[in-house]
Design a protein around this nucleic acid. Sequence first.
RNA 1: GGACAGGUGGGUGAGUGGUUAAAGCCAACAGACUGUAAAUCUGUCACUCCUUGCGAGUUACGAAGGUUCGAAUCCUUCCCUGUCCA
Length: 398
Amino acid sequence: MRAIRPQHSTHLAHARGPYNESVFRFELQAVCKETGARAGVLHTAHGDVETPVFMPVGTQAAVKGILPRDLLGDLDAKIVLANTYHLFLRPGHETVHKLGGLHHFMAWPRAILTDSGGFQVFSLDSLRKVTDQGVWFRSHLNGDSHFFTPESAIDVQLALGSEIMMALDECLPYPVSHEAARVSMERTVNWARCSYAHYRARTTDGSRACFPIVQGSMFADLRRGCAEELLNLDAPGYAIGGLSVGEPRALSLEMTEAVAPLLPRDRPRYAMGVGMPEELPQYVARGIDMMDCVLPSRNARNGYLFTSTGRVIVKQAQYKDDPKPVDESCRCYCCRNFSRAYLRHLFLAGEISFATLATLHNLTRYFDIMREMRQAILAGKFPEYLRAQLLLHHQDLE
RNA sequence: GGACAGGUGGGUGAGUGGUUAAAGCCAACAGACUGUAAAUCUGUCACUCCUUGCGAGUUACGAAGGUUCGAAUCCUUCCCUGUCCA
């Protein structure tokens, strides 16, 4: 068998800073005095990640609809997500490991964050059973039973080789009782401790991080209690999970507000699974550095495009003869070359290229928003940016 | 000219006396989507009216008649399509 080794040098040359690139480290560059919004850099063994950052979701080691080439080139993404549960089932973490690790396997030389499978506790509700020790999953592919523990989730992520591993957590639906949320939160804390002990035992060089996840449903006291417990782990970063599971938007932001101030100032904060474009500044304004969401990619495939002036559901009949680009102020390949009418045609015709163009556009939109925010924070103009956004999206945020 | 087989809503295609304004699929239209069981899913899809109800009325299964309490379904005639035979 031919030796397969990741080849990072060419891709990373420009991304390397003056720091020890083998060590995972967060560098805070600016903090908005009025809101607490932050700009920084996440230094990883696979390149620097400027924050605040939006991470495209590539569950099965692929961001649906586009190629790593698009992510590297046009989008210039610095980090993507992949999923422990899905890659464990198929093709199997050992297979990925044997083939040189996830970066090499999916031809993605930059940073990768792997989710632990905690979200699948929520989304595969009918196929799993949670115990104090872990989660039984019945594979959605063939019905096989698999038991995930905090330790095994770390092992799978170690085999995959991601820079940022997530501790196994229990993501609850909404609404649940305070008591159910408390029991679940305590389980998530225990799991985080187990994950952490295992992570510490198995990693030595500091090149890879593991983030615990704050849970507690929509109860501020539980959220705070959870965060305080997790602080004892002295993790290199913290996530807030269990948001956007059906609750009113105001509640998700309220929970973020309750938790973020408790988290270490010098560590990145990750709000998992958010959000709509107009929500992103709201999280950043509450001190969030990292976000991810399937919306730009999934909605793209469903004909729903995000623009600087609102949504364009390009599959609608009203765009049948529309020669305009999706977003006239967008510089993406899709908007530079194709009309709404053409995109609508591709969608209705079921052409695969629609997904590619639409996803490319939506991710461009998300990245533009993140870039604008970062620049505003660095320039000390984030409050103005935020106020302008609020005016623009007054109704959306109701 | 003869013998069969057929003609159903935008398309396809079920339905052989009443629960049929007519299944299913497709198309079309609208909506949903937030750490992806998603190139997925949901709804609408003859017209009119209102007290929006498993409401009322009108029109509709090639055309026109007929049988029947009741017809897309049975009968008669006609028109059209396909295949085969002359």
